[in-house]
Amino acid sequence: MLRFLLRRSLGAVVILFLLSIVAFLLFFGMPRDPALLMCGKTCTPANLENLHHVLGLDKSIPEQYGIFLHNLVLGSDGFAQGPCPAPCFGYSYHTNEQVWGTLMDRLPITVSLTLGGAVCFLVIGLGTGLIAAWKRGTLVDKTFTAGAMVISSMQIYFLGPLALAVLVYQTHLFEKPAYHEFTADPATWFTGLIIPWVVLSTIFASQYTRMARSSMIEQLQEEHVRTARAKGMSRRYVFFRYAWRGSLIPIVTIFGIDLGSLLGGAIITEYTFGLPGLGRLAVESVFFSDLPLLLGVMLFSATMILLCNIVVDAAYAYIDPRVRLA
């Protein structure tokens, strides 16, 4: 197991390295000059020249990349804004703040949104899916299946404002969504995020409803499930021990992907509810051609996705003994 994790982590580092190169090259392919943007209205050729030098844009691309990599691993004192300990992505062109610090500032918001949403959509999605599979062919099953279908065709930018309008502005049942630090006051943290969680989870939950239902139904038709029934195990026991265990693999797979991409930033949700998470940061960095920030957000999101992947693979080994030995 340890070997497996080591091998996968090594692989992930290689992927991140390649990704950073691609991102670097793409940025230099953009037709905009970040120095020009920073230089403002009173830009003179001399200022521009100076900025190019300060930002290191006058060096060759491989050289710039080398510096970037060096700073990332070892940190650097060479910035005009001050020292930058590892992992150093440099300072943002736009805000002049340390990129790593910015990322860490935004991260709690994204993590709160993701984890709360994930709990909601897992509970709702798997719950309805399992009930539908258990009561297959009945009215309950049909209602849940149809409901999941309708909801999955909705979008956050439709449901979000709708929820805000009804629940916050008209009935005043809930507070306006906002992020409060968990450590400061868990209660406001919770009430502030409940609407984003629910809206986010409805979109995801419908997918889990359908998947849990179909893979449970498939598993219930497996021969080993029939064997378990033939030896006298109750329907409930077989459902939760035998069929559920088999359904876990596809569910965990999709959950890993969803979790990874959510941790990289839920752009639409963050915009809809005005929450300044990583998703917004990503969009802003693109908007301002903020190379250090862009690379930082990108590599950070990629790391999240790769981490989730490794966790999912490790989970497979836990779920399925056949994977363990292979």
Partner: peptide, 8 residues
């Protein structure tokens, strides 16, 4: 007997 026994 392979598919009739649970792999888990």
């Amino acid at each position: 007997p392979l598919s009739a026994l649970s792999p888990y």
